[in-house]
Amino acid sequence: MKKIVQIGVGPLGQKIVKNTLQREEIHLVGAVDPDPEKAGKDLGELCGCTHMGIPVSRELTSSIKGRGADVAVVSTFSSLERIEPQLAELADAKLNIVSTCEELSYPWQTQPDIAQRIDKVCRDSGVTCLGTGVNPGFLMDYLPAVMSSICQDIEQIKVTRVQDASIRRIPFQRKIGAGLTAKQFSQRKKNGHLRHIGLTESVHMIARALCWRLDRVEETLDPVVAARLVSSGYKDIRQGQASGVEQYGRGYVGEEEKITLHFRAAVGEEKSHDKIEIVGTPSFTSVIEGGINGDIATAAITLNAISAVLRAESGLKTMLEIPVPSFSGRFCV
């Protein structure tokens, strides 16, 4: 059994906590969240489940002192810059780390200086740090990279993720701009506060897996505009308002578009699906009809990756560098 401390008890963190209660191989021993309204509350009761006898702390030391934690599960920030101090503190405390931070999934090209600092502090402390999730971390990068292994040669990879955001947690619906006017959407896009984070990181992860040296990466973002009243999300969306986002990430070798990632998430979206197209020898298309629920899958892969992280070498790792993760009812370290 491995002991973990949960860092961040927002909607996703709470889902991860609930999942740990169904895993006999994982034992929660502490929880940290800076929100003063959560401090001191019982973790289980805060998450809407059974009393766990674990008070939520505002700082790390009191949550792990004398409890023998092995791993910190971090579901706080999407920004690598904001999460770096947390990761350094956890590494100094000799805790291995699995995080849902999107920009941590493959930061070596996008933010190399921060990536090198995180890698160093983890190596110095003898711990491993991994950024993962359903996307980035699996569906639009790791999975197509694995599927490419059956090809003799590859000319292009295309990945499409279309999802109905009405089944996703409220913070996700807000992050994609559901319910904003065109003016509000434009302003939040300009401020950098509105987008699915991680598309560029996914492009770079695929390129690294296939040893493609990209000359440039481009990313575009546009609103999905509601054609009618949509009432299936956390708030009503009127005709003409944004119901979500449509983004493209493209990686080029010379002028040739080698990687195309298409992400579309909107409240009320029809025909959710995940599709991987590989043009090469052989060429093939794989489709997951109905798509993968991002909240369920992110909570699951975060816990399932722990065993692989504990078997990996120390330092900052990506999904390409750890042993193949899988669901397991016990740890095989």
Rank of each mutant, 00 (worst) to 15 (best):
V159F: 00
G179Q: 07
Q156F: 13
F185E: 00
R168W: 08
S186M: 06
S186T: 13
R168E: 09
A182K: 14
A165P: 03
R188Y: 09
V159A: 02
A165E: 00
I157D: 03
S166D: 02
Q187R: 12
S186R: 08
Q187T: 13
Q184H: 03
D164K: 08
P171E: 15
Q184W: 08
G179P: 02
K190M: 05
Q184F: 07
R174N: 14
G177A: 11
G177L: 06
T160P: 11
Q187C: 11
I167W: 05
K190D: 03
L180A: 05
A178L: 01
R161L: 09
D164A: 05
I157H: 02
F185S: 00
Q187F: 11
N191K: 07
K183Y: 06
L180H: 04
R174Y: 08
R174G: 10
A165D: 03
G179V: 09
A165L: 06
K183E: 15
I167H: 05
Q156P: 01
Q152V: 12
S186Y: 06
I157G: 02
K175D: 08
K189Q: 10
R169T: 11
A182C: 15
Q163N: 13
K189H: 08
K175R: 15
I154Q: 10
D153I: 03
Q156A: 11
Q187I: 11
T181W: 10
I154F: 06
G192H: 05
K175G: 09
I176Q: 04
G179I: 10
A165M: 00
Q163R: 15
Q156C: 09
V162W: 10
N191P: 00
K183T: 15
A178M: 05
A178F: 01
I170A: 11
L180C: 07
